[in-house]
Nucleic acid binder design. Structure first.
Lengths: 168, 168
DNA sequence: TATTGTTATACTCTATAACTATA
DNA sequence: TATAGTTATAGAGTATAACAATA
């Protein structure tokens, strides 16, 4: 006995091929999701981060670690809570991040004389060298994205995303 | 996804935390991050999902639940593993999702006679009604995004994200 | 043997309360 | 009292192995 529910007949454009349909399987209609912003935004973010993780596997850096090292390197002497806040990371969650970066000798917490409660963050020489190499790997990802979207497509995307995220 | 933003279910324009410190604090230089794709992509995704959670709090739907209900509604009778696969959700992780949707009377698992191993998924009447209302709420978010980016900006963004996610 | 749904599990990310030491 | 860093903890989200029922 077939179980045919009355198909949802909501008007939608044709050609909504989506989802990873296996071989021999008909693709599902996900057009109602792929046409809204949130769904492709999430899928694209996961795809870009997966690609990032593959590229950075040999450097042993996650996206969060890369962003922390770059933020510290470009803003040395800032308080731990300032770096965390700028990156949108809760202060408690940034503690383990700094523990790990410090354990690997990439960043350090310097006790401030002015305010002995706070930690001024900085990269070690080793950390600076790793970030320099990491930026080159990151440049490769940007070139790959520019190849996929076109250089102006990539720039337009970044500009639109910044507006949406209200950063910068 | 945790959304414990109690006592605040009013809808607001899309946008997240900027990472800028409080008054009297100099802004950090995050230009090396905001100019690459991955960082604003992640921040924008979080901002849009936060906005989604505020808008959908009264309907009690997370982004993942909304996408599952829409996928089932537009593809009734498909196997549980097909819906999960199309959404990029691991099959084991989709079990709890279906348990919850079934518990709330929004979707149901129908035993297939052709292959008694599989579950054919469908929305209940209640689920269809909720999805219909949810689509209207989602339309409001899209209008808010179109207001922020311009209608053609929003459409361009979605097209670029789909290319990047390699969906469709 | 292979597949579907499931259970169990582990690991990450995130959010909150509360502690300590300083201010 | 307030702030910076920390600890502890709880909740999602996600990934993998393995099992029972079925093909």
């Amino acid at each position: 006995m077939a179980h045919k529910r009355a198909a949802n007949s909501r008007s939608r454009p044709v050609g909504g091929e989506t989802g990873e349909a296996g071989p021999g399987e008909k693709a599902l209609d996900l057009s109602a999701l792929t046409e809204i912003t949130g769904y492709p935004l999430r899928r694209a973010q996961l795809a870009v981060f997966d690609d990032f993780n593959r590229r950075f596997a040999s450097l042993g850096l996650s996206p969060a670690q890369y962003s922390a090292l770059v933020a510290i390197g470009d803003n040395p002497g800032r308080k731990q809570s300032e770096i965390a806040g700028a990156l949108g990371i809760q202060r408690p969650n940034f503690v383990a991040m700094m523990d790990e970066l410090e354990r690997r000798g990439l960043a350090e917490r310097l006790r401030s004389d002015a305010d002995r409660r706070s930690h001024a963050l900085a990269l070690t020489r080793s950390g600076s060298e790793l970030v320099a190499r990491a930026r080159l790997v990151q440049d490769e990802q940007e070139r790959a994205i520019a190849q996929l979207l076109g250089p102006e497509g990539r720039e337009r995307l970044v500009a639109l995303l910044r507006r949406l995220a209200k950063i910068e």
